[in-house]
């Protein structure tokens, strides 16, 4: 990941190739307007580029770090546009639907696996991972006890771990190596 520290443009291009689609997909979940989502994506890449030196591999994966930057950029944008007053976004039904629609099960032949993750786990993970909610906000939004939020997260993540087996992990590792 030396290229990131030295802000090497080639590395940035590779990062874009690997992550732009995933980040754009998440941006679309937070700001459904494609034009604004594209602005968010662009701003996020500039921030990633400028703060590349502050990435700490021991604190998490590069993708999660990029995702955090994108999410913050998107949330700032929704606030500046007045979409979002506190940490919360729109009514639940809206983004749960979007979450379903934007899944592309044909990709990498994962159809069955993704559908094996039940909605109750997915909505908790989606709200936190994609939308930047805190557990407390999930508790309020979904109207379920904090304990349930935590257990659904744990079970959901463990299910995800089984779904994306060792092959996928290898694929992810290769992504980082390429980066």
């Amino acid at each position: 990941m030396l290229w990131l520290k030295t802000a090497n443009p080639k590395g940035m291009e590779s990062l874009y190739d690997h992550y732009s689609a995933a980040l754009y997909g998440i941006a679309l979940k937070i700001v459904p307007d494609p034009q604004i989502a594209q602005d968010v994506l662009q701003e996020a890449f500039v921030k990633i580029w400028k703060s590349a030196g502050s990435y700490d591999a021991s604190k998490g994966t590069l993708f999660t770090w990029c995702l955090n930057i994108l999410r913050n950029t998107a949330i700032d944008k929704t606030r500046s546009l007045g979409y979002r007053k506190s940490g919360k976004i729109q009514p639940l039904e809206h983004f749960v639907d979007i979450g379903k629609q934007s899944i592309q099960p044909d990709q990498i032949g994962m159809k069955d696996f993704v559908f094996n993750l039940e909605d109750k786990y997915r909505e908790v993970i989606d709200l936190i991972y994609f939308q930047g909610y805190t557990q407390r906000e999930v508790e309020e939004t979904l109207n379920i006890p904090l304990g349930t939020v935590k257990s659904r997260l744990r079970i959901g993540l463990s299910k995800l771990r089984t779904i994306f087996d060792a092959n996928c992990v290898t694929l992810g590792v290769i992504f980082f190596m390429l980066g």
Binding site: D17, A22, Y24, Q38, Q42, F45, T64, I108, R161, G172
Partner: peptide, 29 residues
């Protein structure tokens, strides 16, 4: 494993940005 699984999960939601976007982003950088 969890981090990798989350990433793979995020990749499932990938939507390719418009084709012109890459050039725009890189030129910005």
């Amino acid at each position: 494993e969890m981090q990798a699984a989350l990433e793979a999960y995020a990749m499932q939601h990938a939507v390719p940005p418009p084709p012109g976007m890459k050039k725009q982003v890189l030129s910005e950088l």
